[in-house]
Amino acid sequence: MLTRNSEALDFLLTRRSRPAKTLKAPAPDRDELITLLTAAARTPDHGKLEPWRFIVLQDAALGRLATAAAARGEALGLDPETADKGRRQFADSHLCVAVVESPQDSPKIPAIEQTYSAGAVCLSLLNAALASGWGANWLTGWIAHDRPFVEQELGLSAAERIAGFIHLGTEGAAPPDRPRPDLATKASWVSA
C-alpha cells in the first residue's frame, strides 16, 4: 500500500532557497545544527563510502575567511566586484557549513558517483534547514574553486573539493518565486 507524506511533498514542491545576503542572525545553534547535519548525512551514498565531510564555520572563522578571500581576490587581480563576492560570502554570513567532497579510493564506486553524493549532501542540508524554518542558501563561486584558498584557509587536501558553502540564518525577506523548468521540454517518456 502506498503511504503518502503530503506535507513533505508539498514542501518539496514549494521549497525556495533564501538568498545568502538576506540571511540574518540568529542562526541555528550547535544542537540544531547537529540535527540538520544528521539529516544531510542520510544521503544516497553508493558503497557507503561517505565521500564528504563538513567544516562548520562561525564567528571569528568567518571574519578570518572574509579577510583572506579579499586578499586572495586582490592577489589574483580579480575585478573588485568579483573579488568582493568571495569576501562577502563569509563577511555577511552568520553560520556557514562547507561541504567538502572527500573522495575515497574504491575499485567499485566511480569518482563521479562520489561527487553526486557530495552534491546530494548539499541539497539535503539545504532542504533540512528550510524544512526546519531557517533560511538557507547553497553557494560556490570563485572562492570555492581556488585551490590555494581552500587548501590554506580550510585545510582541504589536494584530492578534496568544495561541493558547496551552505549559509544558514534567519530569513530576512521572503524571496519571490523564480521561473521553473518546463517539464514538457525536460522529460521524455519511454514505454517500449
Rank of each mutant, 00 (worst) to 15 (best):
A39E: 14
G47T: 03
Q114C: 02
A163R: 00
S17K: 03
T14N: 15
G47L: 03
L12H: 12
A118M: 01
P107V: 14
G172Q: 06
G141T: 04
E74P: 06
L36C: 09
A91S: 04
D177V: 14
I112N: 12
M1E: 13
C122E: 06
E32I: 07
L139A: 13
H167N: 12
T185D: 08
L12P: 10
S102C: 08
A66G: 00
K186V: 11
R42N: 09
R42W: 06
L62I: 02
R30L: 14
N127E: 15
L62Q: 00
S106P: 04
A131Y: 15
Y116G: 08
R180C: 03
Q104W: 11
D31M: 13
L12C: 12
L37V: 02
T38G: 15
A131M: 15
S106K: 02
P44H: 06
A70K: 15
E32Q: 14
A20P: 05
A69Q: 05
W142M: 07
A118V: 00
N5H: 09
S124V: 10
E113D: 11
T67D: 15
P26L: 06
L76I: 03
L78M: 12
E101S: 14
K24Q: 14
Q114F: 05
G133C: 08
I166D: 09
A20S: 12
